[in-house]
């Protein structure tokens, strides 16, 4: 269903936003052989039972779409990592937050394509809410390394929903993919 690694990233960050997090941290470390992503939030978290249910595709809390019987975000990611010999870890504490880590190895035939990283970062920055989002992105061999703070950027640009702000945000984030 998801095409690229960045599609999984969008889904996981969306979860953090919906968990009422005030701080979401996204770390993306890419090398020539792998891409590892960690998303940490201080949202409502899950206890062990809820966490197990969240990994079941036929479970949903029914809050977002009351009549649906599936919840596919985490299960899809888990499946994709398993079938491509990647790594998937999730830790959560009720009331404290959740941490999702996943890694794909580029030499595995079933690893999805990486996708458009800066494009995905623009999307996650635009997700509605008052939360702070701290992003760090590194692709060592390509000389790419940068950090983004949502509050710092919205302090300069105002609401990203305004098209003029969004265009500046897009140009800014895309320019960060240039070498130092």
């Amino acid at each position: 269903m998801h095409f690229a690694v960045t599609d999984f990233l969008l889904d996981i960050v969306q979860n953090s936003c919906e968990a009422g997090a005030s701080l979401i941290q996204i770390n993306i470390e890419e090398t020539e052989t792998s891409i590892a992503i960690k998303v940490t939030d201080n949202g409502k978290g899950m206890d062990e039972t809820e966490l197990n249910k969240a990994l079941d595709p036929f479970y949903t809390d029914g809050v977002k779409h009351p009549s649906r019987k599936v919840g596919l975000g985490l299960p899809f990611l888990k499946q994709a990592t398993e079938q491509s010999n990647g790594r998937f870890e999730i830790r959560s504490e009720k009331g404290k937050g959740t941490e999702v880590f996943f890694q794909f190895f580029k030499n595995e035939i079933d690893t999805p394509p990486v996708g458009d990283i800066p494009g995905a970062l623009i999307s996650v920055l635009c997700m509605p809410g008052d939360h702070e989002m701290l992003i760090s992105r590194e692709k060592r061999e390509a000389g790419i390394r940068y950090e983004l703070s949502r509050q710092e950027l919205s302090g300069i640009l105002g609401s990203f929903e305004r098209m003029d702000s969004l265009i500046l945000l897009r140009d800014f984030v895309r320019s960060q993919e240039e070498q130092d």
């Binding site: 635009c126 997700m127 929903e161 003029d164 265009i167």
Partner: peptide, 8 residues
């Protein structure tokens, strides 16, 4: 761009 708001 000054007249449009875009959301996902």
């Amino acid at each position: 761009e000054d007249k449009v708001v875009i959301r996902q």
